[in-house]
Design a protein around this nucleic acid. Sequence first.
RNA 1: UCCCGAGUAGCUCAGCGGUAGAGCGGGCGGCUGUUAACCGCUAGGUCGCAGGUUCGAAUCCUGCCUCGGGAGCCA
Length: 461
Amino acid sequence: MLRTKIREILDRDSAGDDVLVQGWVKTRRSSRNVTFLQINDGSTLKDLQVVADESLSNFADADSLTTGCSVSISGQLVDSPGKGQRFEIHAKSLEVMGLADPDTYPLQKKRHTVEFLREIAHLRPRTNTFGAMARVRNTLAFAIHRFFQERGFLFLQAPMITASDAEGAGAMFRVTTLDLDQLPIKNGAADSAEDFFGEPTFLTVSGQLEAEIFALALSDVYTFGPTFRAENSNTSRHLAEFWMVEPEVAFCELDGLTELAEDFLKYIFTYVLDHCPEDLAFFNQWYDESVISTLEGIASSSFERMTYTEAVDILQRSGEKFEFPVHWGTDLQSEHERYLTEKHIGRPVIVTDYPKEIKAFYMRLSDDGKTVRAMDVLVPRIGEIIGGSQREERKDILLERMRESGLDEQNYWWYLDLRSYGTVPHAGFGLGFERTVQFATGMPNIRDVSPFPRTPKSAGF
RNA sequence: UCCCGAGUAGCUCAGCGGUAGAGCGGGCGGCUGUUAACCGCUAGGUCGCAGGUUCGAAUCCUGCCUCGGGAGCCA
């Protein structure tokens, strides 16, 4: 008999057939002559109830199963007389595939803290929380590809190793094959000529510059892959390794980009609402009772738009006591962003046109000479979920901005070439994938929406 | 990196100067259909590590480690 996934069994219209299920025991409840097993195989949040009685030749085995044991069970699917489930299986045969010694198996049939589960990250996928997280994460990743593919965007794989050491997005991890215990020294420093690539190389912090290269040939592209930041950030919103989605669109200005960002977020959140209702209900019940209503709100309402100048004005007149005072020219702090999106508007907010001094060199300078065509999408609880801009496509102005930022134009000769030959207006943004999963699930800590989170002093799994 | 807070049984925590506790989980027994089942019995701890104060330290002090919350950096 072929194995049937529990999700497929529970979706059936009627009982009656014999089925084979394979999975892990969540709990066992025993009376003298009958044992109830709850089996989960990860295909859905729900467990399948298996009823074993003395008609089973190895009933004693069934009666001794504990949480975490793996089993293969065949039997008839029947309507359940008990409350709590529609169907159950009356076991005709039961094979114990792997035991899980209850003296040492760390998962119990009760709630564990996420902090404890991080210490046993190899077993936490077996919990309801991490199973649901993995399914939501998978669905969001699929929705992201669908959104862009439906719009004719080309999926571009940006390199993970780069020789550009100043992409302006934070500290980078060095990539080297040099023997750190016996470094070749030249002029008092490590001799990179001896290194694998013959020059210093790093893990990428962004695929944006490479995406621009292809956008200026293929029009609409997106990257979706891992990026790395060696910042010593210890917060619930930062990882040293995280996935980023970076669309780059040619013949597009800032207004078109904000529309794309809004359509994009609405699409992926609508998609996850439609395809993961049970998992979202789980998060709504146990982690954040406003998750579903927030996602529904985003899907159905338009995002607020305001300029940085307007945002500063709102903050200054809010009467709120901020730890950091607000004035034009400084970047918005977390508390300011959250005030805007959570209290003042109550919905996602797109803030545009920031002072050029606080933004990257490649963002397009506006006619006022003071602001750049940048945008941040702010959402409740997370703050900044998307950051993007229209890119500076005018070579002379780009050169001037690079000099102001203290960058060596020699290192960006190819980036400048794109402006020398057939330059066009273009724009793009970056979306932190884990922050998106965090937002969609209500999980408070980003370490719990990554299968294997990397943070300072932690790469154990 | 900075500011707070916490580390006591497998897990979640109480105890906060007088010599170690509970619930859950585990083991054993009971129970004819349970829903994180229920009932009874039971085992289980260098109280994060290292110093110090004290007649006496889980409890007070110092340092370190780990974890968490907030901030900065950002996605």
